[in-house]
Amino acid sequence: MTLREDSAFTSASAVRVGVLALQGDFREHARVLASLGAGVALVRRPEDLERIDGLVIPGGESSVMDKLAREFGLFEPLRQGIAEGMPVFGTCAGLIMLADRILDGIVGQQTLGGLDITVRRNAFGSQNQSFETDLQIPALGNEPVHAAFIRGPVVESVCERVTPLATLEDGRVVAVEQGALIATSFHPELTGEHRFHEYFLAKVRAGMSRTVRTGVAGTLERAAQDPPV
């Protein structure tokens, strides 16, 4: 509790971001976030969520992350955090985890949701169809984004509350934003592309200043409601 109170007084740059560390390339995300000056906490258990200002869901196997998140009591606290406006950035498997609807999931696969989109898992086919390409993403500036698609998903449909950030040349949507959530089909954490993480950290800082305005008590109450391990 003391630590949470402290965070309300720290400078806006001293954000603390969790990286979901059940499986996948979470260390690559942690490295990028740390290089941008953020505090980083690996998240494997519900109590790891208590002191974070935002969350990254990395690339990996979405069906495995889903299974472990449910089994180890992370699923509901994560859903709750997303519903309450916690900023989350998901890449590849993270995009799938954040989608309200999923196509081609494994039997019984669930998602945390939050993005009002339908996503198709493994939309390009086998590894032979994995590729790198340059994308124009106006939200991140004129310099194109070099993107690596690795057995990646694609956003098949979006509702009007969702802003598509990037499309392939054939028009398929591969990056989206909705409120405090952003997600990509590709892996900025693997290509030395830091602008998505910077964009996300700006959201996290904006969320922190809101927390300060509305008082820390609400945040403390929410943390206390997280089910025990």
């Binding site: 560390a21 996948g24 032979n128 590729f131 790198e132 390409t133 690596a148």
Partner: peptide
């Protein structure tokens, strides 16, 4: 889609996605 297929980055990258598994 045009792009670079079978690059070292996407080959090594798939293994990155398998980590912790």
């Amino acid at each position: 889609v045009s792009g670079e297929f079978g690059s070292t980055r996407v080959k090594r990258g798939l293994a990155e996605m398998l980590k912790g598994g």
